[in-house]
């Protein structure tokens, strides 16, 4: 008896209207979110840092005395002694193991890595999140198929995948971005799926259904805002991963080619000699990586807070 009373209550028009404020994303949602984000000082500061990084990668060359591929024959062979950062010879960041100007290489590498990271990262997560949302919402056979594909994809030997890709499609920047997206499309899938599985049985979704909304509308209008926080945080986790993955992909011959470089490549070169007294080779690329990553952290958190539909 109590049950049927509850059900009656659930089906009542009044209930649906009571839930409405929670389910309907108000018109001013994005405006509010923007305002909330602007109030977050760390986030705004981080946006500024990221902006500076982008400017550095585009215009940094103007302040460089060397090109990124030129070998400074004067320091080659004496890197440890003479290759450190110096104002005199114009190697602001020192030189790499081959006597090439590290400043110019960091500028060039930042450009590559930001491009790869900021395209491949968000696209991968959006793909994964969309599939995850659909999978969680519809469940059943569709869900099992997606999970099957997910399982298979994680288990595929990805190095072989890169090698095959290289053999068939060769090398270029766009090939590389595409390959990275293909390998990462599972990013965030499970977690969004889980969130949607929980949310889809909430009262406000039932209510939306009762109001006759289509599935697509429910997913993108009402469920999406509630999982945006996952997407945002996940993206900020995936971007650095993608930046590191780039160096592996290039190593296997799909991505960029020496003398071009990337932050990932510079980092692994620097790390391989970090115990031999040429720490600047790790330090400067690492500093760029840290700035990018820390900015992403705070921007991610700021966005999460701003987009939280409950913080109104």
């Amino acid at each position: 008896m109590i049950l049927s009373a509850a059900r009656r209550r659930l089906q009542s028009r009044a209930f649906a209207e009571e839930q409405a404020p929670e389910m309907v994303a108000s018109r001013s949602f994005w405006a509010d979110a923007g305002q909330r984000f602007m109030r977050n000082r760390m986030a705004i500061f981080s946006v500024g840092m990221l902006g500076l990084l982008i400017l550095f990668s585009i215009f940094g060359n103007l302040f460089s005395r060397w090109s990124f591929e030129e070998i400074d024959w004067n320091v080659l062979g004496r890197i440890k002694e003479d290759g450190g950062p110096s104002l005199e010879n114009g190697h602001w960041f020192g030189v790499d193991e081959l006597g090439r100007d590290l400043y110019a290489r960091v500028v060039q590498g930042t450009r590559t890595s930001l491009l790869v990271g900021f395209i491949a990262g968000p696209v991968s997560v959006l793909l994964g999140a969309t599939l995850g949302a659909l999978s969680g919402y519809y469940g059943g056979r569709f869900d099992r198929t997606v999970l099957g594909a997910y399982t298979i994809w994680l288990a595929i030997p990805y190095i072989i995948f890169f090698v095959v890709w290289q053999a068939f499609f060769g090398r270029s920047m766009s090939q590389m971005i595409m390959v990275i997206i293909l390998v990462n499309w599972t990013a965030g899938l499970l977690i969004v799926r889980g969130q949607v599985m929980m949310l889809k049985n909430r009262e406000f979704v039932d209510a939306a259904r009762m109001l006759g909304m289509s599935d697509t509308k429910i997913i993108f209008r009402h469920l999406a805002p509630n999982v945006l926080w996952v997407v945002v945080i996940y993206t900020s986790l995936v971007i650095p991963e993608v930046i590191m993955m780039e160096s592996l992909v290039s190593f296997l011959g799909v991505g960029i080619q020496e003398p071009n470089t990337s932050i990932g490549a510079l980092l692994s070169q620097g790390a391989s000699t970090m115990t031999f007294g040429t720490l600047w080779q790790l330090g400067f690329p690492a500093a760029i990586f840290v700035i990018a990553q820390v900015s992403l952290f705070y921007i991610g958190d700021g966005l999460r807070d701003a987009l939280d539909p409950k913080e109104r």
């Binding site: 090698v163 090398r171 190593f251 011959g253 020496e258 003398p259």
Partner: peptide
């Protein structure tokens, strides 16, 4: 070795060499 050699050719002879790295078995 590849980078240094290509830079020598470029600077001394004006020869333009593109580098191509591949995974071992490839």
């Amino acid at each position: 070795v590849a980078i240094v050699a290509t830079q020598m050719w470029k600077q001394k002879l004006g020869v333009d060499v593109t580098l191509e790295n591949q995974e071992w078995k490839v």
